[in-house]
Nucleic acid binder design. Structure first.
Lengths: 142, 142
DNA sequence: TCTTTATGACTACAATTGTAAACTAAAGAT
DNA sequence: ATCTTTAGTTTACAATTGTAGTCATAAAGA
């Protein structure tokens, strides 16, 4: 799993990836079973998404008898890290801290997540500046 | 500012919003000056994005002499909160904690951000479960 | 071996997005 | 009262995305 960071995965494709990541590998049928309720998708929709994901290099497809077995070529955690960084990269730096705080308030966290988060924050605390500057405007070239 | 949460703002549009949010209000010219370097955009590109944002209800446009003054109709912090929630909503619940930890490691945080984050985490710690279940597969309807 | 069926491949098509050219109308200058 | 400049409007156009129909083919059963 080389984990190419440059791959763009759309929302719909993301749903397919989640199933495959969780199962480790999967057939189109299995994916269909897992998503038809939640997404109200027809089989051809899944086929299209699988095709695009293979083409993008996010999945491998190995023929196993009649069907293909799809396996992830990119790793889940690093893909999640990548897209969240992309998102926050194009937001006002000054407000990222509060946004993450608001976010933490909404998500489910386990005890070990808490430990991990506390550690990260303790580390950051050591060198945190008083204020983070807004980076939304071009620097004045006076 | 009513802050309609349903508005979808694309990446390019986001850049325009950031400038307007930071300035409070702006003309197309001012936006151009702030983004031409960073985005390498031509003026018509900005015009298009402004038009789309007004149409979407993200901006108001008041004629002031020759030009329009654009003002945000949605609030920056809540828009940031909204899009980050949207992003994490379609990710594996089980891995969100570690993703946010990885993210915190990368971003700039001020001392007051740190205080705020510690508070949120302390709150969450009270009721945090041992483990957060993966929510990527359909529940078996046995 | 022939037929049925499951599965993937190809095609489709509208909406959104990124990017910008061309056109038009109004404001300021002469 | 014109002309020029400037700012907005309309049009354009390819790529991506969401969603799915149709076609072809290979496997499985009769």
């Amino acid at each position: 799993m080389t984990t190419k960071q440059s791959i763009e995965i759309s929302d719909a494709e993301w749903e397919v990836m989640r199933v495959i990541w969780t199962l480790g590998q999967s057939t189109s049928n299995e994916i269909f079973e897992n998503l038809k309720e939640k997404m109200k998708w027809q089989m051809p929709t899944i086929k299209t998404l699988l095709g695009r994901l293979v083409k993008k290099g996010a999945l491998s497809a190995d023929k196993e008898g009649r069907a293909f077995i799809y396996k992830p070529l990119i790793e889940e955690q690093s893909t999640m890290d990548h897209v969240s960084q992309l998102l926050f990269d194009h937001m006002c730096q000054m407000k990222i801290g509060s946004t993450i705080a608001d976010l933490l308030d909404e998500v489910a966290l386990s005890q070990s997540d808490i430990v991990r988060l506390r550690n990260v924050i303790d580390q950051k605390a050591k060198n945190a500046p008083e204020k983070v500057e807004c980076n939304c405007l071009a620097k004045k070239t006076v």
